[in-house]
Protein backbone atom coordinates (compact mmCIF):
# COMPACT_ATOMS: atom_id res chain seq x y z
CA UNK A 1 0.00 0.00 0.00
CA UNK A 2 1.28 3.44 -0.92
CA UNK A 3 1.98 5.85 1.89
CA UNK A 4 -0.19 8.92 1.99
CA UNK A 5 1.70 12.19 1.77
CA UNK A 6 0.18 15.35 3.11
CA UNK A 7 1.16 18.43 1.15
CA UNK A 8 -0.95 20.98 3.00
CA UNK A 9 -1.90 20.85 6.66
CA UNK A 10 -3.82 23.34 8.76
CA UNK A 11 -3.76 23.40 12.55
CA UNK A 12 -6.47 25.20 14.54
CA UNK A 13 -6.82 27.65 11.70
CA UNK A 14 -9.26 30.54 12.03
CA UNK A 15 -10.08 32.50 8.93
CA UNK A 16 -12.06 35.61 8.15
CA UNK A 17 -11.71 39.32 8.61
CA UNK A 18 -11.22 41.59 11.58
CA UNK A 19 -14.92 42.15 12.02
CA UNK A 20 -16.20 38.81 10.84
CA UNK A 21 -14.72 35.43 11.61
CA UNK A 22 -15.82 32.90 9.04
CA UNK A 23 -14.44 29.59 10.32
CA UNK A 24 -12.47 28.45 13.33
CA UNK A 25 -10.47 25.47 14.52
CA UNK A 26 -9.95 24.20 11.03
CA UNK A 27 -7.73 21.12 11.10
CA UNK A 28 -7.23 19.65 7.66
CA UNK A 29 -4.75 17.38 5.96
CA UNK A 30 -4.72 17.60 2.20
CA UNK A 31 -3.11 14.73 0.35
CA UNK A 32 -0.69 15.10 -2.52
CA UNK A 33 -2.10 14.48 -5.98
CA UNK A 34 -5.77 14.83 -5.11
CA UNK A 35 -8.56 16.87 -6.62
CA UNK A 36 -10.20 18.75 -3.79
CA UNK A 37 -13.34 20.87 -4.07
CA UNK A 38 -14.32 23.53 -1.56
CA UNK A 39 -18.09 23.90 -1.39
CA UNK A 40 -20.52 25.91 0.68
CA UNK A 41 -23.07 28.66 0.48
CA UNK A 42 -22.25 32.14 -0.76
CA UNK A 43 -20.47 34.20 1.87
CA UNK A 44 -19.58 31.26 4.12
CA UNK A 45 -15.87 31.57 3.41
CA UNK A 46 -14.90 29.39 0.44
CA UNK A 47 -12.93 32.15 -1.22
CA UNK A 48 -11.60 33.40 2.10
CA UNK A 49 -10.23 29.94 2.82
CA UNK A 50 -8.48 29.88 -0.55
CA UNK A 51 -7.19 33.42 -0.10
CA UNK A 52 -5.76 32.45 3.27
CA UNK A 53 -3.94 29.48 1.79
CA UNK A 54 -2.55 31.59 -1.04
CA UNK A 55 -1.41 34.21 1.52
CA UNK A 56 -3.56 36.89 -0.06
CA UNK A 57 -4.94 37.53 3.45
CA UNK A 58 -3.46 36.34 6.72
CA UNK A 59 -5.10 33.83 9.04
CA UNK A 60 -6.75 35.14 12.20
CA UNK A 61 -5.00 32.44 14.19
CA UNK A 62 -3.61 28.95 13.76
CA UNK A 63 -1.05 27.64 11.34
CA UNK A 64 -0.77 26.40 7.78
CA UNK A 65 2.00 24.03 6.78
CA UNK A 66 3.13 23.49 3.23
CA UNK A 67 5.29 20.36 2.98
CA UNK A 68 5.82 20.49 6.78
CA UNK A 69 7.19 24.04 6.57
CA UNK A 70 5.17 26.94 7.95
CA UNK A 71 3.55 28.78 5.04
CA UNK A 72 4.52 32.17 6.50
CA UNK A 73 8.19 31.19 6.36
CA UNK A 74 8.16 30.86 2.60
CA UNK A 75 9.84 33.62 0.64
CA UNK A 76 7.46 35.10 -1.92
CA UNK A 77 9.76 33.83 -4.69
CA UNK A 78 9.89 30.28 -3.30
CA UNK A 79 6.15 30.17 -2.86
CA UNK A 80 5.76 31.10 -6.52
CA UNK A 81 7.34 27.77 -7.46
CA UNK A 82 5.01 25.87 -5.10
CA UNK A 83 1.62 27.38 -5.79
CA UNK A 84 -0.18 28.70 -8.84
CA UNK A 85 -3.49 30.50 -8.62
CA UNK A 86 -6.48 31.17 -10.85
CA UNK A 87 -8.83 33.89 -9.66
CA UNK A 88 -12.39 34.75 -10.60
CA UNK A 89 -11.83 38.45 -11.05
CA UNK A 90 -10.26 39.00 -14.43
CA UNK A 91 -8.89 42.44 -13.63
CA UNK A 92 -5.72 41.86 -15.60
CA UNK A 93 -4.76 43.82 -18.69
CA UNK A 94 -6.54 42.39 -21.73
CA UNK A 95 -4.04 44.00 -24.07
CA UNK A 96 -1.78 40.94 -24.03
CA UNK A 97 -1.52 38.04 -26.41
CA UNK A 98 -2.47 34.60 -25.09
CA UNK A 99 1.14 33.52 -25.45
CA UNK A 100 2.50 36.49 -23.50
CA UNK A 101 -0.08 35.93 -20.76
CA UNK A 102 0.90 32.28 -20.38
CA UNK A 103 4.61 33.07 -20.64
CA UNK A 104 4.39 35.34 -17.58
CA UNK A 105 3.85 32.16 -15.57
CA UNK A 106 7.52 31.34 -16.09
CA UNK A 107 8.69 34.45 -14.25
CA UNK A 108 9.63 32.61 -11.04
CA UNK A 109 12.17 30.66 -13.10
CA UNK A 110 13.52 33.24 -15.53
CA UNK A 111 16.46 35.62 -15.07
CA UNK A 112 16.13 39.27 -14.06
CA UNK A 113 15.02 40.44 -17.47
CA UNK A 114 12.67 37.50 -17.92
CA UNK A 115 14.29 35.74 -20.86
CA UNK A 116 12.62 32.43 -21.70
CA UNK A 117 14.94 29.43 -21.82
CA UNK A 118 14.19 26.35 -23.98
CA UNK A 119 12.82 24.67 -20.82
CA UNK A 120 10.43 27.59 -20.30
CA UNK A 121 9.35 27.43 -23.95
CA UNK A 122 8.71 23.71 -23.59
CA UNK A 123 6.61 24.12 -20.43
CA UNK A 124 4.56 26.84 -22.12
CA UNK A 125 3.97 24.69 -25.18
CA UNK A 126 3.00 21.71 -23.02
CA UNK A 127 0.44 23.83 -21.18
CA UNK A 128 -0.94 25.17 -24.45
CA UNK A 129 -1.37 21.72 -25.97
CA UNK A 130 -2.83 20.33 -22.73
CA UNK A 131 -5.55 23.00 -22.84
CA UNK A 132 -6.01 22.57 -26.61
CA UNK A 133 -5.67 26.30 -27.28
CA UNK A 134 -3.06 26.15 -30.07
CA UNK A 135 -5.39 28.03 -32.40
CA UNK A 136 -5.69 31.13 -30.20
CA UNK A 137 -2.12 31.67 -28.94
CA UNK A 138 -1.59 34.70 -31.15
CA UNK A 139 -4.93 36.32 -30.25
CA UNK A 140 -5.29 39.07 -27.71
CA UNK A 141 -7.11 38.43 -24.45
CA UNK A 142 -9.83 40.96 -25.25
CA UNK A 143 -10.78 38.92 -28.31
CA UNK A 144 -11.49 35.73 -26.36
CA UNK A 145 -14.78 34.19 -25.26
CA UNK A 146 -15.30 33.36 -21.58
CA UNK A 147 -14.48 29.72 -22.23
CA UNK A 148 -11.27 30.52 -24.10
CA UNK A 149 -10.26 33.02 -21.44
CA UNK A 150 -10.72 30.42 -18.72
CA UNK A 151 -8.69 27.86 -20.67
CA UNK A 152 -5.96 30.47 -21.10
CA UNK A 153 -5.97 31.18 -17.37
CA UNK A 154 -5.68 27.46 -16.65
CA UNK A 155 -2.84 27.13 -19.16
CA UNK A 156 -1.03 29.94 -17.33
CA UNK A 157 -1.40 28.14 -14.01
CA UNK A 158 -0.22 24.85 -15.55
CA UNK A 159 2.79 26.54 -17.15
CA UNK A 160 3.85 27.83 -13.74
CA UNK A 161 4.66 24.17 -13.05
CA UNK A 162 3.81 24.05 -9.35
CA UNK A 163 2.82 21.06 -7.20
CA UNK A 164 -0.28 22.94 -6.01
CA UNK A 165 -2.87 24.88 -8.01
CA UNK A 166 -5.55 26.89 -6.23
CA UNK A 167 -8.59 28.01 -8.19
CA UNK A 168 -11.46 30.25 -7.17
CA UNK A 169 -14.63 29.20 -8.99
CA UNK A 170 -12.92 28.11 -12.20
CA UNK A 171 -16.21 27.22 -13.91
CA UNK A 172 -18.32 30.32 -13.33
CA UNK A 173 -19.64 31.92 -16.56
CA UNK A 174 -19.00 28.69 -18.46
CA UNK A 175 -21.42 26.49 -20.38
CA UNK A 176 -21.84 22.84 -19.41
CA UNK A 177 -19.30 21.63 -21.98
CA UNK A 178 -16.63 23.99 -20.71
CA UNK A 179 -17.50 23.09 -17.12
CA UNK A 180 -17.00 19.42 -17.89
CA UNK A 181 -13.82 20.25 -19.80
CA UNK A 182 -12.37 22.14 -16.84
CA UNK A 183 -13.34 19.43 -14.34
CA UNK A 184 -11.87 16.66 -16.47
CA UNK A 185 -8.71 18.66 -17.03
CA UNK A 186 -8.28 19.27 -13.30
CA UNK A 187 -8.77 15.57 -12.71
CA UNK A 188 -6.16 14.76 -15.34
CA UNK A 189 -3.69 17.18 -13.75
CA UNK A 190 -4.03 15.39 -10.43
CA UNK A 191 -4.00 11.82 -11.66
CA UNK A 192 -1.45 12.14 -14.46
CA UNK A 193 0.84 14.91 -13.19
CA UNK A 194 0.37 14.30 -9.46
CA UNK A 195 -0.61 17.92 -8.80
CA UNK A 196 -2.72 18.83 -5.81
CA UNK A 197 -5.66 20.97 -6.85
CA UNK A 198 -7.92 22.84 -4.47
CA UNK A 199 -10.78 24.80 -5.98
CA UNK A 200 -13.83 26.62 -4.72
CA UNK A 201 -16.96 25.78 -6.66
CA UNK A 202 -20.72 25.99 -6.70
CA UNK A 203 -20.94 22.92 -8.94
CA UNK A 204 -21.60 20.50 -6.09
CA UNK A 205 -23.14 17.85 -8.32
CA UNK A 206 -20.15 17.78 -10.68
CA UNK A 207 -17.75 17.86 -7.74
CA UNK A 208 -19.46 14.80 -6.21
CA UNK A 209 -18.88 12.90 -9.44
CA UNK A 210 -15.22 13.64 -9.98
CA UNK A 211 -13.41 14.93 -6.87
CA UNK A 212 -11.32 12.88 -4.48
CA UNK A 213 -12.11 15.01 -1.51
CA UNK A 214 -14.64 17.70 -0.69
CA UNK A 215 -14.21 20.43 1.89
CA UNK A 216 -17.54 21.62 3.20
CA UNK A 217 -17.55 25.17 4.52
CA UNK A 218 -20.60 25.57 6.72
CA UNK A 219 -21.49 26.97 10.14
CA UNK A 220 -18.00 28.28 11.00
CA UNK A 221 -16.46 24.90 10.24
CA UNK A 222 -14.48 23.43 7.37
CA UNK A 223 -14.54 19.65 7.23
CA UNK A 224 -13.12 17.20 4.73
CA UNK A 225 -15.20 14.37 3.28
CA UNK A 226 -14.94 11.86 0.53
CA UNK A 227 -17.88 12.32 -1.89
CA UNK A 228 -19.53 9.13 -0.58
CA UNK A 229 -19.13 10.12 3.05
CA UNK A 230 -20.45 13.59 2.34
CA UNK A 231 -23.64 12.15 0.86
CA UNK A 232 -23.91 9.65 3.69
CA UNK A 233 -23.50 12.39 6.29
CA UNK A 234 -26.72 14.03 5.07
CA UNK A 235 -25.14 17.44 5.45
CA UNK A 236 -25.93 18.40 1.87
CA UNK A 237 -29.61 18.02 2.58
CA UNK A 238 -29.52 20.77 5.16
CA UNK A 239 -27.05 23.01 3.33
CA UNK A 240 -29.70 25.16 1.65
CA UNK A 241 -33.17 26.21 2.92
CA UNK A 242 -35.39 23.17 2.45
CA UNK A 243 -38.38 25.04 1.11
CA UNK A 244 -36.30 26.11 -1.91
CA UNK A 245 -33.94 23.33 -2.83
CA UNK A 246 -33.47 19.78 -1.63
CA UNK A 247 -30.71 17.23 -2.17
CA UNK A 248 -31.61 13.81 -3.47
CA UNK A 249 -28.99 11.39 -2.08
CA UNK A 250 -29.98 8.63 -4.49
CA UNK A 251 -29.74 10.65 -7.68
CA UNK A 252 -26.91 12.74 -6.16
CA UNK A 253 -28.39 16.00 -7.29
CA UNK A 254 -30.22 19.06 -6.08
CA UNK A 255 -33.84 19.62 -6.99
CA UNK A 256 -35.93 22.73 -6.84
CA UNK A 257 -38.73 22.28 -4.32
CA UNK A 258 -42.06 22.84 -6.08
CA UNK A 259 -44.46 25.31 -4.49
Amino acid sequence: METKKHILTTKNLSIGYEKKQLAQDVCLQLETGKLIAVIGKNGEGKSTFLKTIMREISALSGKIYLESKNLDDYDVKDLATQMAIVLTKTSFSKNLSVFEFIAFARQPYTNWIGKLTPTDQQKIEEAISLLEIEDIVQKHLFELSDGQLQKTQLARAVAQDTPIILLDEPTSHLDIYHKAFVFKLLKKLTSKFNKTIVFATHEIELALQICDQILLVDHQKIEAFSPENLIASHQLETLFPKNFVVFDPVEKRFKIQPE
Binding site: R55, E56, D78, L79, A80, I85, K89, A105
Partner: peptide, 12 residues
Amino acid sequence: LLGEAYAKSLGV
Protein backbone atom coordinates in the same frame (compact mmCIF):
# COMPACT_ATOMS: atom_id res chain seq x y z
CA LEU B 1 -0.37 43.61 -15.67
CA LEU B 2 -2.18 40.61 -14.20
CA GLY B 3 -3.09 42.46 -11.01
CA GLU B 4 -1.47 42.50 -7.58
CA ALA B 5 -2.72 39.08 -6.45
CA TYR B 6 -1.34 37.32 -9.51
CA ALA B 7 1.88 39.31 -9.35
CA LYS B 8 2.38 38.18 -5.79
CA SER B 9 1.70 34.57 -6.77
CA LEU B 10 4.44 34.94 -9.38
CA GLY B 11 6.95 35.95 -6.77
CA VAL B 12 6.82 39.74 -6.97
